[in-house]
């Protein structure tokens, strides 16, 4: 039984390619917003990236629906399509939270007097999670996907610790509010990295993520 080309394969390749484009763009969007925060900028380019990610997410969603309608996929093909919708949504959300961070920078203005070290450290951990989620998807690397949740715990803890600190300290409201908001967005990005990792595992093993 030799492998024969199937009509569905063209669509699956197109989906994969769209998702890899989204992966690259969403990484760039988050990096741009973090860079703007740590170096003092506004991340104006993030808006365009986020809009483009939304458009790509719609394309993935439309193509997935079309393929389900036309080819009635099963087994690995069906799992891939289901996972594509989840992963595409994850990449779209990366971009959306990057935009939220850029909007904080725009709204709050100059943050150069704020201590940003803690937030930037957490941002780097989150970026590492994004990188791992993208690589896990690109290579269908289940082992890498399984490492992501442990890092999510670290980012969650950073967010909670920061909240406690802000409640205890009577610091600069602008600084505490901006860092809390940005950490919240980073915490959500980390959650989506975890979901993407779970979807990668689902494609390969068929094991559904825990409810």
């Amino acid at each position: 039984m030799d492998k024969m080309p199937r009509l569905m394969d063209m669509g699956l390749e197109k989906l994969n390619s769209l998702l890899l484009d989204m992966a690259t763009l969403s990484q760039q969007a988050v990096s741009a917003s973090i860079e703007a925060y740590s170096r003092g900028g506004k991340g104006a380019e993030v808006k365009q990236m986020s809009t483009r990610l939304q458009s790509l997410h719609r394309q993935v969603s439309d193509l997935s629906m079309e393929m389900i309608a036309r080819y009635q996929p099963v087994a690995t093909d069906l799992r891939f399509l289901k996972a594509c919708l989840e992963i595409s949504y994850g990449f779209f959300r990366y971009g959306r939270y990057a935009l939220d961070i850029a909007e904080v920078l725009d709204m709050f203005g100059d943050l150069s007097k704020c201590d940003r070290k803690f937030v930037v450290e957490t941002a780097h951990k989150t970026q590492e999670m994004i990188r791992m989620s993208v690589e896990a998807f690109a290579r269908r690397d289940v082992e890498m996907a399984r490492k992501i949740p442990k890092m999510d715990d670290v980012v969650d803890e950073s967010y909670r610790n920061n909240l406690k600190k802000m409640l205890e300290e009577k610091g600069n409201l602008k600084c505490s509010l901006s860092s809390t908001l940005i950490l919240r967005y980073l915490e959500r990005i980390a959650d989506h990295a975890t979901y993407i990792g779970e979807s990668v595992e689902y494609i390969s093993t068929g094991v559904e993520p825990p409810a």
């Binding site: 039984m1 492998k3 024969m4 199937r6 099963v74 690995t76 799992r79």
Partner: peptide, 18 residues
């Protein structure tokens, strides 16, 4: 149809049979 255990089943139902 979602997660067959056997590779042969997977290949048949996904149309990957030669």
């Amino acid at each position: 149809f979602e997660n067959p255990k056997e590779d042969l089943t997977e290949r048949y139902i996904t149309g990957k049979f030669g």
